[in-house]
Write a protein that binds this DNA or RNA. Structure first.
Lengths: 335, 335
DNA sequence: TTGTAAGCGTTATCAG
DNA sequence: CTGATAACGCTTACAA
């Protein structure tokens, strides 16, 4: 079927030149006689020659590929990041190998092994919770890495959210509306970004001289139940902030659950600008993460490190979140 | 930094054997003397040897990689498919190169060129609207391909939704509720799946002896406006079906827009089981696409074709959609 | 059973 | 300015 494709040698023969001359012509080498270049280009066109990147990679020791390992692919936060990464990588002429670890350290190890054997030039990684940084460092085996959304170890580039500030901002906003009791809901509280956001929430509450109430669960089904329970247990609880898109979903459901049992207004601020934020009533005020910047910066940083001559200083991109004020926080403003 | 990694030769030398023996040992070759195998494994462990997949690919002419080209990555339908594809590919020991064409034929051409030069073994493709099948066939240059969600040409494997049946089912359901005037909303009506779904909707309306009303637009902002306009223009219009997750979003907004202007109940059935379906009031009845099956089947089909001995007959997987009945269609049932 | 050698398609090096 | 040649790391004949 696919009769083996033409090689530089075929082109060289047809053009009546040596293989290395063809190679130079392709790579835009220094000075070729115009006439020769002409012949080569004609031969390339005639044969439909296209360079074999695999051979190039073997020869050059570089694959022009970056490995991307995320916890999940369909989660809106990550899928938006991936979208940006793919676009930015394509724009710069790089190729993306996409893998996921499902929050499992074991699966992460396997995926890093795949990347090692594939000899990708660099990695963008959102490490699984419980990762041992030293272990990951070994598993990377010298491949440059950019940590995205969660830290790896000081010594590698990071692209992260200002998590504490983000959660503080949301909490402050609710406090500004006069809410005294504010709960904070998340699943998987061991995940770094949630740890940080919890800290931010607590800091804001403490500064206001108020106690905190955490609503935690192992997964999002349970989080919905736990949030409902918390609301029923504390009738004076009138405000909740959630720490992720999934948690926002669960909290909205919980508030609705409780509402169905009797009138009860509960203010909330969500995390991530999920699409349903403007659809529910009232529209949800959310902390928006700059997903485009996450993807763009991660690729930019990694490519810079991969193409740099001299060692670039360590880069820590700390991205600011933005409060998108709608109605659920108690603001009069309506989308 | 990364002092060049050990090769088979290093392992061979350390184990005091030939390179091919190491290779055989790795590939689970036939009969090795246990003692030799022992020595090799020890050497591998000691050196931390890992096979270079690039060299393997060059030598073997196969990359163990599948190229995946989708219109978008962050659209929930596609991101769910991608998730499945990645998982299924990983499970089977394949690797995924992810690319997007943004519904642009030109961009699609570029991405297929990337796949050709990368020598991926096969491709999963959702072609951009306006693709010339013959052109795509040439651009694939003999690489096996599975068309996902949209057709390529008879002669390649397909994984598609039973689009007509899906839209008919939704329309029928609305008709069953007694709605006579039912509109059908979608952006980009030139995209294959939407063409088919429109046909299904029309067939159901025609069978009921009713006229159809299409609400079309170039993008989803305009679709929201167009749907609102349609509702205002025809006060007797009380039901709408939408043909995609994005259209569902736009229609929900439009209905809400109109509702705000005065009491008006509009029934609807959405497409794709978007997360906001259960959050809005009333919960949205939707046509659910089996995204797991899309991803799973696409990989299964492609891998089968890539590893087959004899030519497998053409496969056309036509997946059935499922009507997830909630409340927005007029059913009493509440989630 | 095991080792030797050729070659996958490129490109860097080094003569001409 | 251009052409032969030698790797890159692996596997598959073919010998031994």
């Amino acid at each position: 079927m696919r009769s083996s494709r033409p090689t530089v040698l075929d082109v060289a023969r047809l053009a009546g030149v040596g293989a290395s001359t063809v190679s130079r012509c392709l790579r835009g080498g220094p000075h070729l006689r115009p006439e020769v270049q002409e012949r080569i280009l004609r031969a390339i066109a005639e044969l439909g020659y296209e360079p074999n990147e695999v051979a190039r990679s073997l020869r050059g020791g570089r694959t022009n590929t970056i490995g991307v390992v995320f916890p999940h692919i369909a989660n809106t936060f990550f899928s938006l990041c991936i979208q940006q990464i793919e676009q930015e990588a394509t724009r710069r002429g790089w190729t993306v190998m996409l893998l996921s670890h499902q929050e499992s350290v074991a699966q992460q190890s396997k995926q890093l092994a795949v990347l090692r054997r594939s000899r990708v030039d660099g990695v963008i990684l959102t490490p699984a919770p419980g990762s041992d940084p030293e272990q990951v460092r070994k598993e990377l085996h010298g491949m440059p890495v950019v940590a995205l959304d969660r830290p790896l170890w000081t010594g590698v580039d990071h692209v992260m959210l200002r998590n504490r500030e983000a959660a503080e901002m949301a909490t402050q906003h609710l406090l500004g509306h006069g809410y005294g009791e504010i709960a904070c809901a998340t699943a998987s509280p061991e995940i770094y970004s949630f740890v940080e956001r919890i800290a931010g929430y607590r800091a804001a509450m403490a500064r206001a001289g108020l106690g905190d109430e955490l609503i935690l669960a192992e997964d999002y089904t349970r989080l919905r139940a736990a949030a409902g329970e918390a609301l029923r247990r504390r009738p004076t609880l009138r405000a909740i902030i959630s720490l992720s898109n999934m948690a926002t979903f669960a909290v909205v459901q919980a508030i609705r659950d409780v509402k169905h049992e009797g009138e009860r207004e509960v203010a909330m601020i969500g995390f991530d600008d999920v699409d349903f934020a403007t659809l529910v009533e009232p529209a949800i005020t959310v902390v928006r993460q700059p997903t485009e910047a996450f993807g763009h910066e991660a690729v930019a940083l990694l490519v810079q490190r991969l193409t740099e001559e001299a060692a670039t200083p360590l880069q820590q991109r700390l991205l600011a979140a933005e409060l998108v004020v709608r109605a659920s926080c108690g603001c009069a403003y309506r989308d």
